[in-house]
């Protein structure tokens, strides 16, 4: 790792000011940033550690929406009583990220801001009609992820929370990479009164939705409804573990499993 200047601001404004300096990077849990710096895949002149910035963590319900603070760790999401009662699919997703020791440290805000194509949370952002709250504005989850490690965030912008719309029923099905534990394919399915959302991570350059399957499920939220579907998909990733056509197969299979899990779940009352 190349050396850098370390900052530990105590307020969000101070953090933003520090990030205005060129070649600065915010750090939350550091579970993605530090490994890439250790391997010298990325280096920064300034690291702005958000650990001392107050009021960035915790899970709460607000106006029918679930608000997760950006520095809430994966284990806090996974074990949140509120989520288990109101949005269990999100807790389940968090329970499958990385490994327990990574979950003890890694945060939702860090994961989303990093936008790894194989990270789990982006699928929840898209499927759960999320809003990304930053120090500057609110960004619709639908326009947040733009490409490989690319988001709508400006250089001085810090994610402070993610707001999820509670679904009637939802589930996440992940096929994890046996070595890296990232998602080879992760499918998040959420049913709302007016729509069904199906978001897939790991399979392409960034998370995407499958309108064709969403339409079928809107009319009939069941595995049967998508039994023989062969959706049009964006260009699939291909690597040592999974070729493009195996991945395309896994997309459909993981969606199927997520639908099966969600449909076996009682619809949550408001």
């Amino acid at each position: 790792m190349r050396d850098f200047t370390y900052h530990r601001p105590k307020t969000l404004d101070d953090a933003a000011a520090l990030l205005a300096v060129e070649d600065s990077r915010p750090m939350s849990g550091g579970m993605s940033l530090l490994p890439s710096m250790k391997l010298r895949l990325s280096d920064w002149a300034h690291i702005v550690d958000l650990a001392a910035v107050p009021n960035l963590s915790g899970v709460r319900e607000e106006g029918g929406q679930i608000v997760v603070g950006a520095r809430t760790t994966h284990v806090q999401v996974a074990t949140s009583q509120l989520l288990h009662a109101r949005l269990p699919a999100l807790a389940e997703l968090a329970e499958g990220i990385g490994d327990p020791l990574v979950r003890n440290r890694g945060t939702i805000g860090g994961s989303i801001a990093n936008a790894d194509p194989a990270a789990d949370y982006p699928s929840a952002v898209l499927a759960l009609r999320a809003t990304i709250v930053t120090n500057l504005r609110e960004i619709s989850g639908d326009t947040f992820f733009n490409g490989l490690f690319e988001t709508a965030l400006e250089p001085c912008e810090i994610v402070t929370a993610v707001r999820f719309a509670r679904a009637r029923r939802a589930a996440y099905a992940k096929y994890r990479h046996p070595a890296s534990r990232y998602a080879v394919v992760g499918a998040f399915v959420a049913q709302y009164d007016d729509e069904v959302r199906v978001a897939v991570t790991g399979a392409s350059s960034h998370v995407f939705r499958i309108a064709e399957i969403e339409a079928l499920l809107r009319d009939n939220f069941s595995v049967a409804a998508i039994e023989s579907v062969a959706p049009t998909l964006p260009a699939m990733n291909a690597d040592l573990f999974a070729s493009a056509d195996y991945r395309a197969h896994l997309v459909v299979e993981m969606v199927r499993r997520a639908v099966a899990a969600a449909s076996s779940r009682n619809a949550l009352a408001d």
Binding site: Y6, R8, L34, P35, K38, I47, D49, V102
Partner: peptide, 19 residues
């Protein structure tokens, strides 16, 4: 490299000492 930081298990190879 697992240690406990404030009683929570973490991988000390992916934590800054200054942090």
């Amino acid at each position: 490299c697992t240690v406990h930081v404030n009683d929570v298990g973490m991988k000390s190879c992916t934590l800054l000492a200054i942090g």
